[in-house]
Design a protein around this nucleic acid. Structure first.
Lengths: 227, 227
DNA sequence: TGGATTATTATGTCTATACATATTATCCTG
DNA sequence: CAGGATAATATGTATAGACATAATAATCCA
């Protein structure tokens, strides 16, 4: 009988599922469990911490560890670069730069990025293709003040250039559904008003806002994850 | 100068951002970093493990630790119970059971749950309200063979009953956008064809499929998370 | 030289111990 | 009895040391 921390986690999880420790109940202390399972407290700690991160346990110093009453399930979703996403479908990735110009962002974008009014940003619109079918329309605001000199975005996608230039940022992601505007409909080759899956991301470094991007995915797109 | 593992993580992250260690590069070994930062190797390990879980580092035994070249950003999203979600908006949650009957699931649902054809499931349709506005339409297939006797679903929502009965399951989640069917449009009080944000979840225990649910969210719904 | 064997190495984990920290419970005092 | 100081306690984290494991590098032999 192995006694790694994953085994301890499994045994604790089994008791939760078996309702030996029902939702809301206090479970024994790390010390007690360590003794019972015949391992060091650090090993129990590792197991319980992992279950807590998954949302199944709630832990507080001195108060102890209890089984989450209404477990808020936590799913981790990976956000790949578009090219990888397309290639994972077995299609060839290509893209077209539809427009690039300096402009003042609309109020909501400026607010999202925490910019004062009148800041000059770069607007980029790129269509990504999977094979020869439209895959996603990318509309992006870039803050040139916080970036190295911009490259030729018809040669490298903004998406990948940013990853290599200012990777490891903090950000904010939202998903929603929206009806295709006439412009989006034309570009994505769908009827006006077709339901589109929208991803919006705002990105900052420690000091400055970097970019805000809106991805309008072609119909059929699914964002998928396991729990 | 503090030297907790979070400080070590911050210092490593700073070097990554500063490109002292550019994407793809091998960083010093835990031992070397421990020496440099004046902490135990276990502390460095904790910090690097955390960064690896976040997708910023890639670690392999013997090969060492390198900065992720194309970091697949990982976002954790919390999936609350609907009632909590509504109450977080400052609205009162209520729901109406629209229909409940025994039926054979359509092929795609049976396939998703890994059921053989002809299995008898229970179909539930519930409308959740935020205040008096439609919030989400829940269409759910339940596997009674894997569940305790079903309660009166007009009194408790299937959502919450399941959480308390068969919590801590594994599952599978997908998000997409879809046009409102005539039925959905009527129930959610939106035009036919309106873009709806769809959440689909399949849930299993170790042995048996439990439920498949499709949530059609009223327009305006956004799924939000930080990275 | 090619292929299998062996050594080396970085990470992964466990242990025992110690101290820190956040709460909760208790006790004391006015 | 209220309120504030104090003790008790469970988790959080750090440490040194040890061994396990996976993967690479080096070596040896046919």
């Amino acid at each position: 009988m192995m006694t790694g921390w994953e085994d301890i986690r499994a045994r604790v999880l089994a008791r939760i599922r078996a309702r030996d420790w029902p939702p809301g109940a206090l479970i024994p202390s790390e010390e007690a469990l360590a003794q019972e399972f015949g391992v060091a407290r650090a090993t129990v700690n590792r197991a319980l911490r992992d279950l807590a991160e998954a949302g199944l346990l709630e832990r507080r110093r001195k108060a102890g560890t209890r089984v989450a009453a209404l477990p808020v399930r936590k799913a981790t979703l990976s956000i790949p670069v578009i090219r990888q996403e397309v290639e994972a479908l077995g299609k060839a990735h290509s893209f077209t730069l539809l427009s690039q110009r300096a402009a003042e962002p609309p109020g909501d974008v400026a607010a999202l990025l925490g910019l004062r009014d009148g800041a000059a940003l770069i607007w980029l619109e790129t269509l990504h293709l999977a094979g020869d079918a439209p895959f996603v329309l990318e509309g992006r605001w870039l803050n040139p003040a916080a970036l190295p000199p911009l490259p030729d975005f018809s040669a490298i996608s903004a998406n990948e250039w940013l990853v290599t230039q200012v990777s490891y940022t903090t950000g904010d992601i939202a998903f929603s559904a929206s009806a295709a505007s006439p412009h989006e409909a034309a570009v994505l080759q769908v009827p006006i008003g077709a339901p589109l899956f929208i991803t919006e991301r705002s990105t900052w470094t420690a000091d400055a806002p970097i970019t805000h991007v809106r991805l309008a995915h072609a119909p059929g797109y699914r964002l998928h994850t396991m729990v």
